[in-house]
């Protein structure tokens, strides 16, 4: 119940396109705002923090979220937030993560840290106690309750001008309206992988229990998180993204169009009824995806665009600096 958005610049050459990546994603969301006014979110792929191989981490601050909901700014709430941040710092320290830089924005804590070990291992050791929103060399997920333009200001989204990103606005269906149930979802434990989704997974509980038995953890009751966790699981047993997308067509039931982004690519998968809309547009320098053409048209006012939509039971992905872009069919 939502709108999805995706934008990928194919190469690093100078661009003719005159919006920043962040601005463009925000505008697509705003143009399709009627589809989901509850919450919004972005998965932005920023320049890797070259120095010392730092990683980006973002955590949800539940105490901060609470003050946001209750619109309170009392001292007690502030001290709760402070305690929560301290707890995160302590936990990270105990796991040999060295925090270089940190900042509180909205109801999240953004951390730049140096860490030499395995991200999956790291995530598994703290995911029961902390709420990681994203971890990666490039990935930064920002999501919150509210309208995209207003949140873009709050989180300075429009300054982002990186290579690619995906974004989402949500009309809540079966799980609550909170920052943590907003999309995108990080494929928990897998560096730089994020998912947004429009539709409903109708075998949610069967798949969730299957994945939990495999040791995968869930933080919410949101079915998009299931997609992220599913992809993460497949990759944890050695599948590549393309294989995982294809397998998801067999394993997930219901109607869905979802996007997944990695360090250098954006992929999609669409169910056998192809009921949930998704329109794509491509030119020499970029690929744009929106739930409605009106979203893409925002980026190219007054232009007639050659757009198309993926076929039922299909998946595909675009990789930066590669020109092969092809829809592939799942097994009927």
């Amino acid at each position: 119940m939502c709108a999805i958005a995706g934008l990928l610049f194919k190469h690093d050459l100078s661009r003719n396109f005159n919006m920043t990546t962040g601005e463009a994603l925000t505008e697509i969301l705003d143009a399709t705002l009627h589809r989901g006014p509850d919450s919004a979110g972005w998965a932005l792929y920023k320049e890797p923090l070259k120095k010392d191989n730092l990683i980006r981490m973002r955590f949800l601050l539940t105490a901060k979220e609470l003050t946001q909901i209750q619109k309170q700014e009392d001292v007690e709430a502030e001290s709760k937030v402070e305690r929560e941040i301290k707890k995160i710092r302590k936990q990270l320290e105990s796991l040999n993560v060295t925090v270089i830089d940190e900042a509180v924005i909205g109801c999240t804590l953004s951390v730049h840290a140096s860490y030499k070990g395995d991200i999956l291992h790291l995530t598994r050791s703290f995911e029961k106690e902390m709420l990681p929103i994203s971890i990666g060399e490039s990935l930064d997920i920002i999501k919150d309750v509210g309208h995209p333009r207003e949140l873009a200001r709050k989180y300075s989204i429009n300054n982002f001008n990186g290579s690619h990103g995906i974004a989402h606005i949500r009309l809540a269906t079966e799980s609550g309206v909170r920052p943590d149930t907003a999309h995108p979802f990080w494929a928990c434990g897998f560096s730089d992988i994020a998912t947004v989704h429009n539709g409903q997974i109708t075998n949610y509980w069967i798949m969730r229990r299957r994945l939990e038995r495999k040791g995968m953890a869930f933080q919410t009751h949101n079915d998009t998180e299931l997609i992220a966790v599913y992809l993460a699981y497949q990759m944890s047993v050695g599948a590549d993204l393309e294989d995982a997308l294809k397998a998801s067509l067999d394993d997930l039931d219901g109607t869905f169009s979802y996007l997944v982004a990695t360090k250098d690519s954006i992929g999609y998968a669409k169910d056998k009824l192809a009921a949930k809309p998704m329109v794509k547009y491509e030119n020499d320098e970029m690929i744009v995806i929106s739930s409605e053409e009106v979203g893409i048209n925002r980026l190219f006012p007054g232009k007639a665009l050659e757009t198309n939509e993926p076929a039922p039971l299909s998946y595909g992905f675009w990789r930066r600096n590669l020109h092969q872009i092809k829809d592939k069919k799942g097994d009927a």
């Binding site: 709108a3 009627h34 269906t173 949930k276």
Partner: peptide, 9 residues
């Protein structure tokens, strides 16, 4: 009408 998002439209 393929969900609440299309319903509003």
């Amino acid at each position: 009408i393929l969900g609440g998002d299309d319903l509003i439209m």
